[in-house]
Simulated assay, not measured.
Amino acid sequence: MTQLAVNAKSLKFTNILFKYCGYIIFIVLAIVFSIISPSFLQLQNILNILNQASVLGIVASGMTIILIGGGTHVIRGGIDLSLGNNLAISSVIITYLISKNYSFLVIIGISVVCSLFIGFINSFMIVKLKIIPLLATLSMMYLLQGTELLISGNKPIDVSNPIFQFLSSGSFLFLPSSVWVFILVEIILYILLNKSAFGNWINAVGGNPEAATISGINVKFILSLTYIIASISALIAGVLAASRLSGSVPGIGDVMLFDILLSAYMSAIFSHTSVPNIPGTILSALFVEMLTNGFTLINVPTYWVYAVKGVLILMAVAITTTQQRRLN
């Protein structure tokens, strides 16, 4: 066998490894957890993972849309560090209004207005004032964190609501209600990004904003919409989180931010083009919750879980960067 043939086979193997590395890691980890802990593959535990992934997957999909529209450049690219606290404040506002016996329509109306306002302010700072997304959303993150603590008094708010009970304990065709909400949201976002002109515009803006402008796309408007859509996704996830907790808990946004970033960035390793995408985000959210759940079952300390997640983010960025260079 010639050296050229050996190199060709080696290159082909490397390409396959990069293309399917995400799936390989996912399957290997599931096998390891199922071997160490027999309860991992029990139906109730699988449903629990799906339930937890519903909240994370929806808000992480919002982050993914921002990454697609703004690009993945570390400094200039799209990012929203406020999404975790956006979710948290939506949860607090809803539970606070429920505790004050406001009508359902009023609660939904106020929540949607607040969510749209947060998305609008983020987009205004980034698009109009041209503040770096990292800094703009960082400031919004702390603003929302302070507002959340102000509304809740830094205490949990416990509520009982029929809609929350349906979302947390209801089921249809053996799947929890929250999972069906997750499926519905992801179908809508997938169609929006992959089967519509709007999705083409977002991809064009994220890929080359100058070329998108020349082709007649309103880059500022599309970029603004990505932050507003992401804010709405945080609201939906906030409702599911509040229903699962039967209220709101201070600090949930800070806890979830790392997982949101991990799920959004890891989505790229589930794509043959190594770019963030909705199906990849779904798998990443399931992967992150499987990781947390599996480590809990085998009694791994929490600090090791965070360490592994940090390594995964580094690995995801390294793999996608390498793969993009190879494709180019």
Results as ranks from 00 to 15, higher is better:
L4A: 13
L4I: 15
F18A: 06
K19C: 09
Y20T: 14
C21Y: 07
L29F: 13
S34R: 06
S34W: 09
S39Q: 13
Q44E: 13
L47F: 08
I49W: 02
A53E: 06
V55R: 00
I65V: 14
G70E: 08
H73W: 09
N85S: 14
L87F: 06
V92R: 00
T95R: 02
T95P: 01
L97A: 04
I98K: 01
N101C: 01
F104V: 15
V112M: 01
V113K: 01
F120R: 02
N122L: 11
I126W: 08
K128F: 13
K130E: 15
S139Y: 07
S139N: 09
Y142H: 12
L143F: 14
L150V: 12
I151V: 12
G153D: 09
K155W: 06
I157R: 00
V159H: 02
V159T: 11
N161C: 06
I163V: 12
L167G: 02
F172E: 09
F174P: 00
L175H: 04
S177N: 03
S178I: 13
W180V: 14
I191V: 15
S196T: 15
A197N: 14
G199M: 04
G199L: 07
E210V: 13
E210I: 14
A211C: 05
A212M: 06
T226G: 03
I228F: 10
S231Y: 04
L235A: 07
L235H: 06
L235S: 05
A237W: 02
V239A: 01
A241M: 15
A242V: 07
A242H: 04
G251L: 11
G251E: 08
G253P: 01
L262T: 15
S274R: 05
P279F: 06
I282H: 04
M290C: 12
P301V: 12
P301C: 05
T302Q: 08
W304Q: 11
V305W: 06
Y306R: 08
V308L: 06
V311S: 03
A318C: 08
R325D: 13
